[in-house]
C-alpha cells in the first residue's frame, strides 16, 4: 500500500521534508516506525506520537488509513 507520511515541527527538520509517500507492505504502526527509524536514525532521539484519521494511535494499532502523521510534543498557548 502507498502511504503518505506527514512530519511536523522538529520532526520535519530531521526528515528534511514535511511529507513523503512510501510503499508499505506490513500492517502495524510499530512496523512502519521500524521502517522510518531505519530511514531516519535521528528520529530515535525525538519524542513523538503517531496519528491516523486525526486520532492518536498506539504502536500496536493497524494501519488502516493512507495518511499517517508524526507529531512532536504539543506546544500550544
Amino acid at each position: 500500500m502507498i502511504l503518505t507520511i506527514k512530519y511536523f515541527g522538529m520532526l520535519a527538520e530531521v526528515t528534511e521534508c514535511a511529507e513523503e509517500t512510501i510503499t508499505f507492505s506490513e500492517s502495524t504502526v510499530s512496523e512502519l516506525l521500524k521502517m522510518l527509524l531505519a530511514k531516519y536514525p535521528a528520529l530515535e532521539k525525538k519524542e513523538f506520537q503517531v496519528a491516523q484519521n486525526q486520532t492518536l494511535v498506539s504502536e500496536d494499532a493497524q494501519i488502516l488509513n493512507s495518511e499517517i502523521v508524526l507529531l512532536p510534543p504539543f506546544a500550544g498557548g
Binding site: F8, G9, M10, A51, L71, P72, F74, A75, G76, G77
Partner: peptide, 14 residues
Amino acid sequence: LVNTIKEQVPIFGK
C-alpha cells in the same frame, strides 16, 4: 479549557 488545549491540540512552536 486552557489546560486541555495545551495538552491535546497538535500545535507546535518554533
